[in-house]
Structure formats: C-alpha cells, structure tokens
C-alpha cells in the first residue's frame, strides 16, 4: 500500500510541475474563494487501488464459479465504491474560504492564521486543510462556518505571502481523494524582531516637554471623538478649528513623559539594527505604559499609547524597505 501511495505522490508532483494549469490555479486570487467543479480533482487513493484489485479478483472468481450471488454483491460493492467518488467531490464542492485572519508575529516566531471556511448549505465532513506541510481536519454543518487555525513559521520581517493551500478529503470511504489548490491573494505583515538588549532611548529635557504638554490645548492630548464620550469632555474650541470633534483625553498616565523614538538619532547603527532597536523601545514603552511617538524617514506616528498604537508602529517598522 505504501508503494502505491508513493507512486501517486510522485505522479502528483510530476503533474504539478508539468501541468500546473490542470493541478492548480497559478495566479493568486482574491477572497472569498469558492470550490467548484473546475477546480476539484479526484484520484483514487492507494487503498482505493488496492480495493479495486480486490473487487476484480472477486468479480473473476464469481464469474468463474458462476456464483451469481457473489457476482451481485461484487457489483453492489463496485457501484457503491464508484458512488463514493461522487460523494468525495460533493464534499468539497461549494466550500468557501471567506477570510483569512493573520495574527501579529515577530520574525522567527510562529504566525497565527485563521482560515474561515463556510459551507453552502451542505454538510462537509473530514475535510483536510493543508498549509505549508501542516494538516488539519475539520467539519462544517450545513450553512455553518468554522475557523481552522494554523501557525506558520516566519523568518524575516516584512510582507510574507501566504503559501499555497490545499484542501482535500477522502470522505466517505477513503477510496478516492478529491483535492483543490487555493492561492489566496493575501499577505501578512511580519514584525521585526526587537534586539535583545541595548540602551534606553535618549530623552529631550524634561522641562521643555512638560511645558509643551501644559501649554493648553495641545493636539497630543486630544483625540478623535468616539460615540459614548461624555459631552463635557469635548474640546469645543479646538474642534471648531478642525473638521471633526476632538475630545480631551483624561486617560493619559500622569507623570510619564512620552518617548520620542527617532530613526534619525540612530544613524550610528546599520539599517536592520536601527529597526531592531526601535522595535525594542516600542515594546518597552508598551510594557511600561509610556506614551511614545515614532519618527521614521517617510512616516511619522504621533505620540500615542495602547495596543493599537503599538501595532501601528510595529507595522510601520515592518514595512520599512
């Protein structure tokens, strides 16, 4: 049986090399991707081939011994096996990959990917999702959807395209394998890895900073209005000069100075080392609950705090050339 599986695997890889149009879609596609008859392929599994040989033996035996009852049941088993091929096809047909949610990963750490699979009003069972050599099985009830979570290895920061995805099933009897390749047009951003240790960021003189903060209606202390903010927090005067409502932010921790993290101050280091240092500082700021602003060659991120700010800064770092 192993030999058969090997042979099939070799044949599959040959077909993928020689007949790419036949075995998968070559160009990345946009989500959602729905599986349909043009992109589902079926071959017998090794077990299926073995079972066929067994059925042939039984057929010849039944004919030779003129045993009609055995012939009838051999025909029954043969017809059922063939019908299972159609079920294998239907098990994939109509399955949709709606979205892929990528988590945030630092280069070298695994990236979490959530695949949202949706059924089109039909039960799908024992479907395998294969990403980058990892396999997971899932089932979806009719009209339902499910998430399949993978963690993908990362090596370097920046945009990382998703690997080719394979959906396959050998439902219901394991005699046939139907499969389809997916090549979603989606990349995920891998953050730079922070350096292990280094000096803390150099800070501008305290008094200057304090003066700026207490100068009155500085924009750094204001933020956009969000539904639910109390009316008395709205900075009406400032808002009048802007297009949108601004709200006085009272949540800023008192007594902490904002870190100004500037790319240009690190000219002594090389490109990647600068990024790594900035990444570490951002991490420390986030851990200590300090406000920070990031100044990059082509991008400036105003002083802020919190997970969204951190993500925004790390994304900017990851995107650097």
């Amino acid at each position: 049986m192993d030999l058969g599986v090997d042979a099939i695997r070799r044949m599959q890889s040959w077909a993928e090399r020689r007949l790419p149009a036949l075995t998968r879609y070559r160009r990345p596609e946009s989500l959602p991707i729905e599986l349909h008859r043009r992109r589902i392929y079926i071959v017998p599994t090794g077990f299926g081939l073995g079972f066929t040989v067994l059925l042939t033996v039984m057929l010849v035996g039944a004919l030779n011994y003129a045993n009609n009852a055995a012939l009838l049941l051999t025909c029954l088993l043969g017809a059922a096996s063939t019908a299972s091929m159609l079920i294998a096809f239907r098990n994939l047909d109509g399955l949709r990959l709606t979205t892929i949610q990528a988590g945030h990963a630092i280069a070298g750490q695994p990236l979490t990917l959530q695949f949202h699979m949706q059924s089109a009003g039909r039960m799908h069972q024992a479907v395998y999702l294969e990403v980058d050599g990892q396999t997971q099985a899932f089932a979806i009830a009719p009209g339902d959807s499910t998430r399949v979570v993978f963690s993908l290895a990362t090596t370097q920061r920046g945009w990382q395209p998703l690997p080719r995805i394979k959906l396959w099933t050998s439902w219901p009897l394991g005699l046939f394998r139907s499969w389809s390749w997916l090549y979603p047009q989606q990349s995920s951003l891998v953050w730079p890895r922070p350096e292990a240790h280094g000096p803390p960021p150099s800070q501008p003189p305290d008094d200057l900073h304090r003066r700026r903060l207490h100068h009155g209606e500085d924009l750094a202390a204001l933020r956009d209005y969000r539904p639910g903010d109390p009316l008395r927090h709205i900075a009406w005067k400032v808002s009048a000069r802007h297009h949108s409502l601004l709200v006085k932010d009272f949540e800023q921790p008192e007594g902490h100075e904002a870190w100004r993290l500037d790319w240009r101050q690190l000219s002594a280091l090389d490109h990647e080392a600068r990024i790594a240092r900035l990444a570490r500082w951002l991490g420390e700021a986030e851990a200590k609950g300090r406000r920070s602003s990031l100044w990059l060659p082509e991008e400036e991120i105003a002083s802020g705090i919190g997970q969204a700010h951190y993500t925004c800064c790390m994304n900017a770092l990851a995107r650097l050339p």
């Binding site: 057929l59 004919l63 030779n64 003129a66 009609n68 012939l71 009838l72 025909c75 029954l76 043969g78 017809a79 059922a80 063939t82 019908a83 299972s84 079920i87 219901p172």
Partner: peptide, 19 residues
C-alpha cells in the same frame, strides 16, 4: 449508499458477460 447503488448494480449484474 448501498441503496443508491442498487440500480446500477442490477444493470451490471444482468449485463456483465458470463463465462
């Protein structure tokens, strides 16, 4: 599955050439 395969089975049974 077996019930759905029955029609084909019967036709095949009748038509498979006997030795």
């Amino acid at each position: 599955l077996l019930a759905a395969s029955l029609p084909l089975t019967l036709f095949a049974f009748v038509l498979v050439p006997r030795l």
